[in-house]
């Protein structure tokens, strides 16, 4: 069964996610004795060998790594024109590299943002930028360490599709899209902060209507 949520429903996934082959030698970086998990924004994502070695399926729709897209754009132009190419961006890559690579961002039918770890919140800002600054309107999908407790935030930042991590239930995750019914601040899904959505109570009304008795449930 598919683990893809799109527009509040579990749907079949028509896209193949293409990953980079593992680098020839994996260097484990350590800092203060701890393995470094996150990459610094702007760090190179792939070696030329990895880019060359990435196998893109001959047919069907494929989401390919940004570095591969940038290096092999010409070669993919026909399939791109057919709407068969989507691009995924890692949390440490520069969004501008993607937006500069196409004359119209909306020619991409799908952009995915990778969350290498669910606590890496860069993807939230990247999504917000794609939707607001760059006017991207097509599918925006979260991939990687996508867990239900972040879905609500993702939705608010402009994602409309979520590829839930394989070992978790997408069914359960659906519920989390509705964790809060009326958020305070404006975001991509609703740019209006709550005070522009509703006439809110002032002190006068609050103290008249909702009595806040000091001894209401005095304890003892």
């Amino acid at each position: 069964m598919s683990n893809l949520i799109k527009n509040n429903a579990i749907v079949a996934d028509e896209w193949t996610l293409v990953k980079l082959p593992a680098p020839a030698e994996e260097t484990v970086r350590k800092q203060a004795g701890k393995v470094v998990i996150f990459k610094v924004t702007g760090e190179p994502a792939a070696t030329p060998e990895q880019i060359e070695g990435t196998v893109i399926p001959e047919n069907g729709k494929a989401i390919i790594p940004l570095t591969v897209w940038l290096a092999r754009k010409e070669q993919l132009s026909a399939r791109f024109a057919k709407g068969e190419i989507g691009v995924w961006v890692d949390s440490f890559e520069l969004l501008e590299d993607l937006t500069d690579s196409v004359d119209d961002i909306n020619r991409l039918p799908l952009i995915a943002i990778n969350f290498p770890r669910f606590v890496d919140g860069r993807g939230f800002s990247m999504a917000a930028l794609l939707r607001t600054r760059y006017g991207y309107k097509n599918e925006l999908r979260s991939i990687g360490d996508v867990l239900r407790d972040q879905l609500y935030f993702m939705k608010r930042c402009g994602f409309d599709a979520y590829s839930i991590r394989a070992d978790k239930s997408a069914e359960d995750a659906l519920a989390s899209l509705r964790d809060f019914s009326e958020p305070y601040q404006g975001a991509v899904d609703n740019p209006l902060p709550v005070w522009r959505r509703h006439a809110r109570t002032s002190h006068h009304a609050a103290s008249a209507g909702r009595v806040f008795s000091r001894h209401e449930d005095e304890v003892d």
Binding site: F118, V119, D120, G121, R122, F124, S125, A128, Q150, Y152, F153, M154, K155, R156, C157, F180, P183, Y184, Q185, A187, P193, V194
Partner: peptide
């Protein structure tokens, strides 16, 4: 305070 509570973009700083 209200603006920062569950601000979705800054939930994973």
């Amino acid at each position: 305070r209200q603006w920062s509570s569950f601000h979705p973009e800054f939930a994973g700083l």
